[in-house]
């Protein structure tokens, strides 16, 4: 078996920080080695969770779109929301790059939805606005990384 990738990157980070950094001769070199070590720590976390994060987030945004079809007036935006809400999430391709393309499309539409909802005064729109802010908060928690 191969060592798990997050573990391997953590070891690389430790090696850079404890064995290579002291050998760097210039302040700029020390900074570069330190940054490389920190990046390994961050990437190790992101590697392990990336698929779960994207699948969860894409599902959460699609659920908002389904709810929004009852709030947003008839028109081009509502049609787009309805189409997105009817698309299975996740799709068949679970590569991070494919999930990220879907995530980008959904979050671009979320911006449009948020701007539209801000202009509506109905109780349903206010509740949806609050739900969108909940999702934006959740999105930062999903992306949060711990520095080594």
């Amino acid at each position: 078996m191969r060592p798990p990738i997050p573990h391997t990157l953590q070891v690389v980070a430790g090696t850079l920080a404890t064995q290579v950094l002291p050998e760097a001769r210039t302040p700029f070199g020390q900074q570069a080695v330190g940054l490389a070590a920190q990046l390994c720590v961050l990437i190790s976390q992101e590697f392990d969770r990336a698929v779960a994060r994207l699948v969860e987030e894409n599902g959460a945004v699609v659920a908002l779109f389904a709810r929004a079809t009852d709030v947003v007036p008839a028109g081009e935006l509502r049609d787009r929301l309805a189409a997105a809400a009817a698309t299975p999430v996740p799709g068949p391709d679970l590569r991070v790059s494919a999930l990220q393309v879907v995530n980008d499309d959904l979050r671009r539409m979320l911006i449009d939805l948020h701007a539209a909802v801000e202009q509506l005064a109905t109780p349903e729109a206010r509740a949806l606005d609050a739900a969108i802010w909940d999702e934006l908060r959740a999105s930062t928690q999903r992306r949060h990384l711990m520095q080594g």
């Binding site: 990046l39 930062t140 990384l145």
Partner: peptide, 27 residues
């Protein structure tokens, strides 16, 4: 420059968290 990669992996999300607090939208 690795410091620019660091901005992507660390600062983008941290800045979003800061923006939420600035706008009074943090939890």
């Amino acid at each position: 420059e690795l410091i620019l990669a660091m901005t992507a992996y660390w600062l983008n999300n941290f800045q979003d968290e800061i923006l939420l607090r600035s706008m009074g939208r943090s939890a």
